[in-house]
């Protein structure tokens, strides 16, 4: 009997322990479900409490956001992620980048999910701008900022600034160059686009780069043609006190010597706001 008790008692103890553990974890799940504390301590406090391990704390904070996001993929609720949860994520990412401003993943995550899924473009761009300032060698972050400004915020001038920075850092990436010029043009700053493209060509010549120079030159030619029409329209407005109705009017009043040709094969025209545009949209037109 004593031997049997000696055998049963430890087994019983283990069983009770397992049950207690399961009960406690269930309670913990309930607690998390009801309270949902979305809190992150201030970055300054984290800096002090990390005791010289800011990098590791930063990794931990990022992983916290990353795993939280991963955990929401199984949710059936709509919206899948609540607004306060997105805000918590950006706050934690902000703290992670305060601890280690060179850490790429928080910026990458912000651009991939907070911009495209949560639509938090302005908040994410603030984070990305910080990363772009700190990671001086990185071409991706200024590209993200520039792209977001151009595509989501319709801020052509800022987009131009960041895209041209991305292009400079990449040593002349054609995509960045083309987007930068387009952004400047859309911001009604054709002269920016022209001087930028001229600078890119000079830079390519200086470094003996030939790839992509022909494309830049073509875009430059198109931009210069549009600028010529813009200047003519500006003179027209000064003389007649109103905007010309179309380019034909500029030709008729001798404000424009001849109709410039679009190297992409399109035709220049003036939209309802008086902006000079081309039917080719600066892409080669198939004839």
């Amino acid at each position: 009997m004593k031997r049997l008790l000696q055998l049963i008692c430890p087994l019983l103890l283990v069983l009770i322990l397992l049950l207690a553990h399961n009960l406690a974890t269930q309670m913990q799940k309930q607690l998390r479900k009801t309270s949902d504390i979305l809190y992150t301590p201030p970055a300054d406090f984290l800096k002090i409490s990390s005791l010289g391990n800011k990098g590791l704390f930063s990794d931990y904070l990022f992983l916290k956001v990353y795993t939280f996001y991963g955990g929401t993929l199984n949710r059936n609720s709509k919206p899948r992620i609540r607004n306060e949860e997105w805000e918590w994520m950006i706050n934690v990412l902000h703290n992670a980048t305060e601890l280690d401003p060179f850490f790429l993943d928080p910026y990458y995550f912000a651009n991939a999910f907070l911009v495209w899924e949560a639509g938090m473009v302005k908040e994410s761009n603030l984070l990305l701008e910080k990363g772009s300032r700190k990671r001086e060698w990185d071409q991706l972050l200024p590209f993200y900022v520039g792209f977001n400004c151009y595509y989501f915020l319709n801020d052509g001038l800022k987009a131009f600034r960041f895209l041209s920075e991305a292009s400079r850092r990449s040593g002349g990436n054609q995509l960045y160059e083309s987007l930068a010029a387009r952004a400047a043009y859309n911001a009604d700053k054709t002269e920016f686009a022209i001087s930028y493209l001229e600078d890119r060509i000079r830079d390519a010549e200086l470094h003996g780069r030939k790839a992509g120079v022909a494309d830049i030159a073509k875009r430059l030619e198109s931009m210069k043609a549009m600028r010529e029409i813009e200047l003519a329209a500006e003179s027209y407005r000064k003389v007649f006190g109103r905007r010309p109705a179309d380019i034909a009017e500029l030709l008729e009043k001798k404000m424009l010597g001849s109709m410039p040709s679009d190297p992409y094969g399109g035709f220049f025209y003036m939209d309802s706001n008086g902006r000079v545009r081309t039917t080719s949209d600066m892409r080669s037109v198939k004839k």
Binding site: D59, F62, L63, F102, F103, D105, Y108
Partner: peptide
């Protein structure tokens, strides 16, 4: 294991982990 979980900056996390564990 942990640095392999990262999206981009695998090297940074690997070095962080190495140096912090040493400390």
């Amino acid at each position: 294991m942990i640095s392999g979980m990262m999206m981009q900056d695998v090297a940074k996390v690997a070095v962080d982990m190495a140096l912090s564990s040493l400390n």
